[in-house]
Design a protein around this nucleic acid. Structure first.
Lengths: 225, 225, 225, 225
DNA sequence: TATGAATGAGGCTTCATTCAT
DNA sequence: AATGAATGAAGCCTCATTCAT
């Protein structure tokens, strides 16, 4: 499903604080598409208007500046409840009896794959523009990164309590997982480096890599500090 | 050392195919700095000229278009022999007797840290602009990514032969390592997300994570497929 | 009293040909304020709408174009009977026995001071926009300047008949008086040049200046031609 | 002579700090003409470019913003040494033996007339825009109004010492003279109110008005306070 | 070779005005 | 009558690039 369909559905469901006219939806979706394709700075408002099928002036009735369009994207992400569904699904997993860390990891990653197809455009924008827009960074950190991290830390604590994973600081573990998965996504989807992977198999490998590292199991495992 | 000092040194040493006037050096360095700070599309040639201390027209005497400036950066990276020194250092490590995979990993990562200080600007540009410039992608793939991968695959093969690491496809392993380290770098340096890490300790943890994953060593380790 | 209060009062009194809804009053007053503050060309209709507390479209229901708003201001001035009250007051003065030219002058000037507080905004607009809008000039000339001049000429004739003032053409005298007082107002209120005058004293001096000029009274006064 | 010819002459004479290319001269002159005709806010940069015969972008190479064009006009006035020639001429008059205040006044006013023909455009702009641009007001006050006033005060002091004019504060007298002459100029040239005056005769009357006021000489002259 | 003035296309944004509701 | 979303022309300004010097 495209971003536009997702947002449309969200608006129709009246489950959201977002209030948007048809045209405003067209505008933000066109902006998302184009920012994702060409980058924020290389996209012109006239292009956005053309793709949205509105007059250029109409953009500025809804978003005071071009930058505001960029800063509206995090709101979409939040309202799309991407993280909420994400974590709801994780909660469901955790509620099952005898959930292993492996099961959890696989859920995270496969979740990310569903993600990718529809939300990759959003993720691309966010990560491409983060380095250049401190205000975007702030907004994302406050409304997404921080809450997500806290939630994940709790989950990791749970597995640590169960003795399923090593006794590293939970924050460190979260960073590792995030970092690994993100690096993977970047390589595939953002940098578009052709990795000609068999996705199924590689995902499997990725899970095992995160769980068991690269060492031979027999090798004497030095404890983490 | 700044990029400019590195390039200056390189030119003085006559060890390079690069032939540059003083001014040309100023130009490319100014461009590198600015592209890194603000992104390619958001940097103007007049800004570059100002920082380089040359007239605007001078830029276009050396580089036909602004884009050519961007495409000249990979050449700098190649000529700076960043990868060459990188791999030379790795070779040195491998030539030592009884080199462990752990030692190798630590070398790679600490290498990356030296890297960061002087070459991060280059890396930032490359990864930020890769998604938008297929020609840049092609150039980087041909002149750097492919050779680097091949070299790494050989190294990984060596450790596999030694029985130090798991029997996964070498390409997969290289991707894991690259992906993990890159994800880490991105989070810290490029997205500038504040991770308040104790770098020393975290590096140590990173090494162990790559080697041994996150599972408790006691847990029954399912074999990789 | 502000312009709005004056117009409100006028409308409530039913003594005027002006028929205005509450909103229309808000619009014209907002326009007057803003034209006075920033000039006609630099004021936007959206600003006017905002200050008037109406929708942008509402303005154009009452005034076909922005220019029509400007051309409506002379009507306000006329309907506010500014000149009428002005001249009524003068008439009252003239009806008193033994009115001196000095008394008259002082009345004109102090009148102008009361004026200033509430009507300066209107005067500012008129004089600032006169040079650029021939239609405004025409309207003002026909409906205000000409009748005012005629009235003043009659008054001056009266004083000339009484032998109180010199035997110059009445039109010339009116021009002098107008010109002197207007110059003074412009310097103080419109150009906002800070003259740090003691207003009371300077007004006194202004009266005497107009009456007796700057020459020492003893000096041989050459007759006017 | 037009402003352009005056500036051209000035530049050719190398007697000025102003350094201007041919195009820059065209731009500032076009701007002066148009600001004078239509007002600053109602003049577009594309119009200026067209009249100056340059590309629109060229304007912004010489003047960072449209407002800077406006603020450059006082510099032209200063460099044209309008005030300098003005005061030099006055000095010449004062150096003659037995100069009367009358002679001086007549010189001021006739001077203003020469002025009018070529410099009225500049004066129009200044006075029309003063109310809206505090920075313009500041610049004009510092570089012209203040020095001019000081000079005039000295001159007036001279005539007071000679016993030719009344013992009013010199500042007050200067204000009266300025105010009267300016009011006259405004009425004629700026508001373009048609006064159908015989200029020769009216100037004569203006001089006498300033000197002797409007009262019959026989009338008992009350002293100034 | 180096300059920097000049260009004009195009960028972002504002504006007066219209029109369906 | 009133609204305010929509428009597209126009406004100010920046840009990459050219070219005479």
């Amino acid at each position: 499903m495209s971003i536009k369909e997702l947002l449309q559905e969200l608006l129709d469901s009246n489950n959201s604080k977002l209030v948007m006219t048809e045209k405003q939806l067209n505008i933000i979706c066109a902006a998302i598409e184009l920012f994702s394709e060409k980058g924020f700075a290389a996209t012109s408002t006239s292009e956005i208007a053309k793709r949205a099928g509105v007059a250029e002036g109409t953009i500025f009735r809804h978003y005071k500046t071009k930058k505001d369009l960029l800063l509206a994207i995090p709101d979409c992400i939040v309202e799309l409840q991407i993280s909420k569904t994400f974590f709801t699904q994780l909660d469901n997993i955790l509620e099952q009896p005898n959930v292993s860390f492996e099961k959890f990891l696989r859920a995270v990653i496969s979740n990310r794959k569903d993600f990718a197809s529809s939300n990759m455009v959003l993720i691309k924008i966010i990560f491409q523009e983060l380095p250049f827009h401190p205000d975007l960074r702030l907004k994302m950190t406050e409304s997404l990164f921080k809450p997500a991290k806290e939630k994940l830390v709790k989950i990791i604590d749970y597995f640590k309590d169960q003795g399923q994973i090593k006794d590293l600081p939970s924050k460190t573990i979260v960073n590792f997982i995030f970092t690994t998965i993100f690096g993977y996504m970047f390589t595939c989807y953002i940098a578009q480096l052709d990795l000609d992977w068999n996705i199924e198999k590689e995902t499997e490998n990725l899970v095992r890599y995160i769980m068991n590292g690269l060492c031979k199991p027999a090798s004497p495992t030095s404890e983490f500090s």
